[in-house]
Amino acid sequence: MTTEHAHVEEHNHPGPRQYVIIGAILAIITLIEFGVFYLSIDPALMTWIILLLSSSKFLLVVGYFMHLKFDDVRFSGLFFAPFLIMVSIAVVLMALFFNLTR
């Protein structure tokens, strides 16, 4: 069953060409991040820019390299459910520890 399954999947999988393109995009985003770090801008703005860039890298790797975009939706559930829980917990913890709730 496994082999059969793998073959079915391959039809809509990206091939090596797309992988290299994704890899190039990842490299470029990293370079942009590097550049942004040396801009003198408002730290809050910088934070949001980096968060945006990092999450796009994150999504590219998860979506393409890990095939989540093409794979069964249950895998996405197994991965993103704890991800959302963890992000929420982290945000709440930071709010608590930086005394935003007093």
């Binding site: 942004v36 910088m46 890298k57 890990m66």
Partner: peptide, 25 residues
């Protein structure tokens, strides 16, 4: 491979949040 990519995305987060945002300014 899934494991390897995961290690990679963890680093993406650490690089962004801990290094870039952390060290900025």
């Amino acid at each position: 491979g899934l494991y390897w990519h995961f290690v990679d995305i963890v680093w993406i987060v650490i690089f962004g949040v801990v290094y870039l945002i952390g060290a900025y300014g």
